[in-house]
């Protein structure tokens, strides 16, 4: 199962390497948002501490939704969804493969853009601790989002459908993750926010388990 899931994730990376449209557009969008935010905060430096965490969350949410929108739709657009469903594999292999690809893509983009965020907003090096709640939230985002991407696969306006349907499920992780990030930006230590991080870990485990169990490609007919 893992071998086939890795093969699926590898295939998605091969495809992205061939066109690089999603990767470059996500990077461009992220850098643009960070640059504009840094410009705004030089005019209003008094709100920098309060808003810096929020700004990166806006980046995260935007790129996460773009990644999710393309996650399964890329198969459908190439007419390959049927071919994937023709393979004698459990739907969980597809879920796991897509999860591995999407979370790695998201983390790579975060690792590239976050240092720029720290530099442009002139944050302390300790700000890198913010990556912990951001990574944990990203895992939940992709884990839950893939399930809703499946449900929206054959619907008209699927990109909007994913965002509207998945948002209520993501809200707890969004609020807790944002709160953890804001506290870290305000000078808190990891030990001060361990309960919030634990919530994010439990959220990820719970919803990824549910999504993995419910993900059934035969539902899409």
């Amino acid at each position: 199962m893992i071998r086939k899931a890795l093969a699926l994730a590898y295939k998605d990376f091969q495809m992205e390497a061939g066109k690089r449209t999603l990767f470059t557009s996500l990077l461009f969008f992220s850098f643009m948002l960070i640059f504009l935010a840094s410009f705004t905060l030089t005019v209003y430096p008094e709100v920098k501490a309060a808003l810096s965490g929020l700004i990166y969350w806006l980046v995260l949410i935007s790129i996460a939704f773009q990644v999710l929108n393309r996650s399964l739709a890329s198969e459908e657009d190439f007419g390959c969804w049927d071919a994937l469903c023709l393979c004698p594999i459990s739907p969980r292999v597809i879920y796991l493969g897509k999860f591995i690809y999407n979370i790695l893509l998201l983390i790579i983009i975060e690792l590239i853009t976050f240092p720029a965020f720290v530099v442009f907003l002139n944050l302390k090096p300790t700000s890198f601790c913010m990556l912990i709640p951001i990574f944990l939230a990203s895992v939940g985002f992709v884990g839950v989002g893939l399930l809703f991407a499946l449900f929206s696969l054959k619907t008209a306006g699927r990109e909007l459908a994913i965002q509207v349907t998945v948002l209520p499920i993501l809200l707890p992780a969004l609020f807790i993750g944002l709160k953890a990030t804001l506290l870290l930006a305000a000078g808190a230590n990891i030990s001060d926010i361990w309960k919030l991080l634990l919530f994010l870990v439990l959220y990820d485990l719970l919803f990824i388990t549910i999504a993995c169990l419910v993900f059934d490609t035969t539902l899409v007919d």
């Binding site: 699926l8 091969q14 495809m15 061939g18 007419g79 049927d82 994937l84 023709l86 393979c87 004698p88």
Partner: peptide, 27 residues
């Protein structure tokens, strides 16, 4: 084994990469 008019291929991958991927899916 099914063939469909749409072909079921990843257009940006090579012939070998496509077949290799599907072969792996078949174990």
């Amino acid at each position: 084994g099914l063939t469909a008019p749409s072909g079921h291929f990843y257009e940006l991958l090579t012939v070998y990469q496509n077949l290799e991927f599907y072969g792996k899916m078949y174990g």
